[in-house]
Design a binder for these strands. Sequence first.
DNA 1: TCCTTCATGTAACCTGTTACATGATTCC
DNA 2: GGAATCATGTAACAGGTTACATGAAGGA
Lengths: 174, 174
Amino acid sequence: MSLRIALLGLLTAAGPASGYDLTKRFESSINHAWQARHSQIYPELNKMAADGLVTVQEEGSRGRKTYTITEEGGRELRTWLIEKEPSRSYRSEGALRAFLLPTLEPHEAVALLRAEARAYDARLAELEALRMAKPSWKSPGFGEYALDLGIRQTRLMRDWSEETATQIETASRS
Amino acid sequence: MSLRIALLGLLTAAGPASGYDLTKRFESSINHAWQARHSQIYPELNKMAADGLVTVQEEGSRGRKTYTITEEGGRELRTWLIEKEPSRSYRSEGALRAFLLPTLEPHEAVALLRAEARAYDARLAELEALRMAKPSWKSPGFGEYALDLGIRQTRLMRDWSEETATQIETASRS
DNA sequence: TCCTTCATGTAACCTGTTACATGATTCC
DNA sequence: GGAATCATGTAACAGGTTACATGAAGGA
């Protein structure tokens, strides 16, 4: 379901596009909130066309199909946003690892956490850069809130890793 | 893979247990980091037994099977924690929604965000309560770091929702 | 006796990833 | 001519959810 919604959102925000375009838009915009490969996107667009949420507006060279969102597609997006209670369940390898840290020796846990903190530093730099350079196709404001959220979350992971490392280090010295 | 690791972790932290026990442990401890139902846990334990990571220590009444982690299982857990680069990719309906907020009218977006903030307030209260009352089976320290992380993340979502609502509200009045 | 909890399992389905496969167009 | 990019698709597999199915034990 969410993939449909994401595609409808991208079509709304940036106008008609092919599956190929949408795959790239995914990478350059919504990537920190949701991911999808072309192998998932193409079949989904076909199903959405069958369901009347999008239409093939034009067929170009190399078999390119340009999809446009229909009125029904617009309603679907709106209904999802307004009526669907979002799942707030959270699943992350990082958190699972956090859970299992006490099964390791303190010095091992500290090393892992410090390495994680560095990885999140790098990710943070990427996201900050993204905030500066925005792709031309975006409608104004689109994706900014989600990017802000992504940056906050990455910063949180960095800080938590760093602080937990220090905490374990201190505790293990006593 | 992660499910295996979570199960090995729970067996390490709290000793031998049945699939039924592990299902409950999942709910009461690791839930905010990873979820699994009994329908996933039972077949996985059977596969793990076949792979020699756990053994059936004892068969009790009602067909109860008590699993114990083997040495090989311990090695598997340790190797995963130390050598496996954790996936840092993030996928959340909340973030997707955040992304799509600008497709709604400002007042609609504000209402959604405020409702989200309240939901996260409630979740936060649950997690804080969990921090106080710890199940008897936990070995000391186990799960504390992950719980701290969960609380921080929930607080972040609450704050982001609230602040973004205010921001949109202010902007729409100008 | 009946309800609840304990206890294990399977089947159908949905979502997502990786890999395979193909061919047109454009640029050097 | 050859490489890169554009463009679409399928198949196999892995992971997870929902629903179905069954039965024993214990307590009211």
